[in-house]
Every structure is written in C-alpha cells, then in structure tokens.
Computed example of a mutant assay.
Amino acid sequence: MTGRVHRIEASVDWPPGHVAAYLLDPDGAGGASLALVDAVTPDEGGETALSEAFGALDEDLSDVTHLLLTHPHVDHVGQVQRVVKAADPHVYAPASVRDRFDRDPDDLAATVRTTATRAGLDDAAVEHAVEMAVGSLHRSRDLLPVEAVDTWVEDGDRFDVAGTTVEAAHTPGHQADHCCFYLPDERALLAGDMAIEPFRPVVLHAGLDRGVEDAIDAFRTALDRLDALDVGTVYPGHGPVHERFTETVDRDRDSLDRMLDRTVESVADGATTVEEVADRRARDRGIEYIVAEVVAALTHLDATGRLESTVVDGVRRYETS
C-alpha cells in the first residue's frame, strides 16, 4: 500500500514539529479517486503543504473524492473547508463530534472553571483554562462545520473508499472522539494521533470538561481495540511511518501504567493537588497541556482505591490509601 499512500506534512510548534495527513490513491488511477485522511493546520503553512504535495504528485485538490477525519484537533481539521470548497468530497468524521460541537459554551465554561478550581489552579490559570476550552470549541466548529459531514462514523463501521474497504476504530483517550481508519486488505492503519512511534500521546480526552474522569479507562479501551487489529504499516499523524505497531501499542500501555505509578509516588512524596502533581511533572515547563492528564490520573486512582481524596476549601486534595 505504501506506494499509493502519499504523506503530506505541515509544521507545528510542538514535538515532533510536524503533523501529517495522507493522500490515498487506492486503485492507482490518480485523480480518478483520491482520498485525503486529515487536513493539516489552518494556517498558511497548512495551505502551502497541501498545494505543494498535490503539485508534486501532479494531482489537483478538486480530485479528492473522500475526506476522512480522525479527530477534531486543530492540526487535523485545519484545511477542511478549503478541501470541501475545492472538491465537494464525501466527508467522514467520528459520530461523537456532532454531539461535542453541540456543547453549550456557557456550560462548558462553568464545568471547566469548577474542575480547574478543584485542581488547585490559581484564579488566572483557571480563567486561562476556561478561555482555552471555549476557544477550542468555537475554533473546531468553524474549521469543521457539521453540515459538511456526510457520514458520521461509529466504532466498527465499514465502508468503501474508491474500492478499498475501510474500518473505523473508535480510539478515545488522547481525544474523546478519535477514530483510526483500518484498511484490512492492506493491513494498513491511518492512525491519527495513536500508535505514534516517538512517544505516547498525552491523555487530553475531554480536557477539563465532563468525561475527564473516564479518560484513563477510555485510553485503555482504545489500546485494546487497536490490539485486535492485524496491522502491518502505521501511517500516524506525528512521527514517521512505521511497522512497529505491536511495540507502540505495548509501549503506550506500559507508559500509561508508569504514569499512574509515578502519580501515586508524587502524592506519597507530598504533592496533594492536581497543580502540585502537574508542577512536579512539568518542572520548568508549563502545565496547561498536561493538567487534563493529571486530573484524569488522580481521578482514576481515587476511583480505583489507590488514592483517597477530600475537598478542602474548594480544592480536591489527595493522599495515599
């Protein structure tokens, strides 16, 4: 399949410095049937990356017949409207995105404010978390209009893309709606932000919104679903194309377990709040992109009896059981 899958890279400001989309030419017929998986960043760099990739292949954006989206993070849906305007493709997106985009922004803000406050963040950090969450909701809605989606994909759905069978695997944890697209005849996985070779993706899931308490179990469910697939080649959204599928899934499971163990160790060593645990992990870096994972970890450890918690003056404090 490799010769008929073309990688499109755009730059991002976080490791490993790029995001990848993939152009599939399933039947080898060129512009007669092209499928694009994800749509890179919404900036000029993303637009240029698409233009240069299609030009190098002597293809045209208007020839895209199918657009498959793994999840609604900005670096994966950034050029959706451009592709839709140019090609009017059949658009596939995870079904739960539709409900997520229907989220009341005021209720989202209130929920995030409560979660961030109980995490022990100061007032400025709480308001920053709220702004990030609400801003992300509005930005994602703008980049991926629900009316542009033709097929809302559920876990296990199978469909045909220009003669190639595609199976959707709902793989939450990094992002609650995340889907990987599996091509069983080619043993290929269009993996989005899962099965990345350089590192385990952070457990963002629902951020600090409702559902953060389910994030760890969701990630494990995702890994179990991936384990059930017979994958030869992985085409990830970050890092290189690789054939180390089993190793990356096993590594991510081990990494998740080690992260939980280290969280217990941090609490045993005197960290009592989400902020304190996150600060120890981040050291001299900011905590804004790991705080959701820390909330998820502490909540999970509390629910499974490895830690205990109480709310004191509006802040949830943890101790070992």
Score class of each variant (00 low, 15 high):
A296Q: 04
V274W: 02
V277H: 01
T272W: 08
A271H: 06
G286I: 09
G314V: 13
R285A: 14
S255C: 04
V312M: 07
L307G: 04
T263S: 14
V312W: 08
R251F: 02
T273H: 09
D279C: 12
D261W: 08
V277I: 03
E308L: 12
D279W: 12
A282L: 08
D250Y: 03
Y289M: 13
D313E: 15
G270Q: 03
T273M: 07
T273N: 11
A296E: 04
L307E: 06
A268S: 12
V267T: 07
T273P: 08
V277M: 03
S309R: 14
R253K: 13
T299I: 08
R280G: 10
R306Q: 15
G314M: 10
V264A: 09
R306E: 15
H300T: 00
R281E: 10
V312H: 14
H300F: 09
R251W: 02
M259R: 09
E308A: 15
A278V: 07
V295Y: 02
A271C: 11
D250C: 05
R251L: 00
R283P: 00
V295K: 01
R258K: 13
V274H: 03
V294F: 04
D261R: 14
D284N: 11
D302S: 05
V267N: 07
A271G: 03
G270L: 06
T272P: 00
R253S: 11
Y289C: 10
E265D: 15
S266G: 10
A297G: 04
R281S: 11
L256S: 03
E275N: 13
E308N: 12
D254A: 15
A297M: 08
G314Q: 11
D254Q: 12
M259G: 05
L298K: 01
V294T: 06
R283M: 02
D261G: 12
A278M: 04
E293Q: 15
I290G: 03
V295A: 04
L301C: 05
D250T: 14
D269N: 13
R285F: 11
D257W: 04
R283L: 08
R306N: 12
D257A: 15
D302F: 00
R262A: 11
V311F: 07
G286S: 14
T310Q: 13
A296M: 05
D254N: 09
R258I: 07
L307H: 06
D313Y: 11
A271T: 01
R280D: 12
D284L: 07
